[in-house]
């Protein structure tokens, strides 16, 4: 889902840089108030895992592929604020060193993957609040990770659809259905991988699931 340069108009690039920058400042401030130093190793290792996992494209039908984005995975492990920031680092390294995602499109890519991915944390929080049985956790993570890819694709479809490159072929009227068609399928892969990895981590090393601890603590203390 990494947008390369040339697909977005300068206006959309600038707008998405501004929106993403606002979210990053918010995440940074919230992170400083939330986390203690013991998060650092988990943050570093989980970001490195997401980078590696994004290299492995899985095939989907009709000659297309997808790969894990990992936003919801990071949100479960790190909580929303560190998830947004560490996904931004993954995207930055990809854009600078691997030309995966454009430099001008960086703001849009941060919004579509890091911010939407990190914010999927709050969907898990809402779902687990309403369905308090313990076995609702994994279905909630499945739903949140699927939705994070579909919403990211929708945002991407709007950004490219409102840009001149796609205006001749029909703009958002064609980009939205086309992007959603593929990412509804790719999202299932995202959800399957995220749910599997989280449930295994929960079994082997439950202490690393800091994001979940944040959810539980918020529920117990009734914090926002």
């Amino acid at each position: 889902m990494h947008i390369s340069d040339g697909l977005l108009s300068p206006l959309i690039c600038g707008l998405m840089y501004a929106v993403s920058a606002a979210f990053l400042v918010w995440s940074w401030k919230k992170a400083k108030a939330t986390y203690s130093r013991s998060l650092t190793p988990i943050l570093a290792v989980s970001s490195a895992f997401v980078f590696a996992a994004q290299m492995i494209n899985f095939p989907i039908p009709y000659g297309t592929s997808g790969h894990l984005v990992g936003g919801t995975f990071l949100a479960v492990v790190l909580g929303p604020y560190a998830a947004i920031l560490s996904m931004t680092i993954v995207l930055l390294i990809q854009a600078l060193f691997f030309a995966d995602g454009g430099i001008f499109a960086f703001g849009a890519n941060v919004f579509n993957m890091a911010i939407i991915g990190g914010l999927s944390f709050f969907l898990i929080k809402i779902l687990t609040k309403n369905f308090t049985k313990k076995n609702w956790l994994l279905p909630s993570i499945f739903a949140a990770s699927w939705l994070s890819v579909v919403l990211g694709a929708l945002a991407c479809a709007l950004q490219i659809g409102f840009s001149p490159a796609f205006s001749e072929v029909g703009g958002i009227a064609v980009t939205v259905p086309a992007m959603l068609f593929w990412h509804v399928i790719i999202g299932v892969g995202e959800a399957a991988i995220t749910t599997t990895v989280v449930s295994q981590l929960g079994r082997i090393q439950p202490t690393v699931l800091n994001g979940l601890a944040l959810v539980r603590r918020a529920q117990n203390e009734g914090l926002p």
Binding site: S36, R37, L43, F51, A52, A82, I89, I93
Partner: peptide, 20 residues
């Protein structure tokens, strides 16, 4: 890339967390 991400996110991790 894995080591680059590890190093950069480690540095960020130090910056956004408080010493216990």
């Amino acid at each position: 890339g894995t080591f680059l991400v590890l190093a950069m996110s480690y540095i960020m991790g130090i910056a956004i967390t408080k010493k216990e």
